[in-house]
Design a binder for these strands. Sequence first.
DNA 1: GCAGAACGTTCCTTTAGGGAACTATGGTGG
DNA 2: CCACCATAGTTCCCTAAAGGAACGTTCTGC
Lengths: 151, 151
Amino acid sequence: MQRTQFGDMACSIARTLDVIGEPWSPLILRDVYVGMTRFEQMQQDLGISRKVLTERLKWLVEQGVLERREYSSRPPRFEYVLTAKGTELCDLLMVMVRWGDRWTAGAAGPPVLYRHHACGQIAHVEPRCSACGEPMHATDIDVLPGPGLSG
Amino acid sequence: MQRTQFGDMACSIARTLDVIGEPWSPLILRDVYVGMTRFEQMQQDLGISRKVLTERLKWLVEQGVLERREYSSRPPRFEYVLTAKGTELCDLLMVMVRWGDRWTAGAAGPPVLYRHHACGQIAHVEPRCSACGEPMHATDIDVLPGPGLSG
DNA sequence: GCAGAACGTTCCTTTAGGGAACTATGGTGG
DNA sequence: CCACCATAGTTCCCTAAAGGAACGTTCTGC
């Protein structure tokens, strides 16, 4: 399909998309996060083409999001686990869940629930300001040029 | 490419991807968010194919993320603006920026900065628990089956 | 009435995804 | 020893989606 590469743009959204923006990648990440770490598990759970799954896993390992780890040497068997870089990407998944729950779940309600370890409550993520702790949404900020902005 | 449709999966991540998971869609949303609301502006800013831009805008309007609004009747000219549904999707963009800044920005620093209206500080989003207000990351929760989970 | 601007549409080429068959390695049961 | 199974990919063909350039349409202004 000769797709444009986003990685070279001076935009953290584009660069994040370069890592996990391809179709299936976030769902692969989700599977690994919930413990479906093996090729066969993911392939059956997602219904993804084995070819594409191979390509995506290789890319995510190259990018340092997943680690390919041998869990059996004889026969050689591998599983994929999250790195720190990959674990932090899961924040993104949680925000996607939040939006999907609000706007696409319908009357049936959310497919999954989160229980927060710290308080034990069923809850969801809420974006807050790292400086003052108040809610911080897209309408609550000004966007300013930063040091990494070229051109 | 005969791509698998994610919209029917019982997963809020998959359903969110169905809306904005295709290549370019998040970047289109970003452009609209920062005020580049017209076809020509987006096409030139992104370097996207006019064909694909047309398709994506139509889809995002169908999904209720953008609204196609006439800003001039003679000649007829249109711009695209965020709906409430689309504005909330920008939370997702902010989290993508946060991850991209941390893991892909390098020595040059982040391309853009956020100033929070409420406190005036340069800051970034931090996911917190809607129940107790403490930080809530992927490692801080248990995932439980919810009412909308089929099968 | 010709140029130019804004917003698409059409056509062709290239490439990526889907899906099924095949390969490789090393058990396990008889 | 041989058939059979499980895991983890690889290869092949077909279809559909992205890129890119040219074209179309509707109006304004000179």
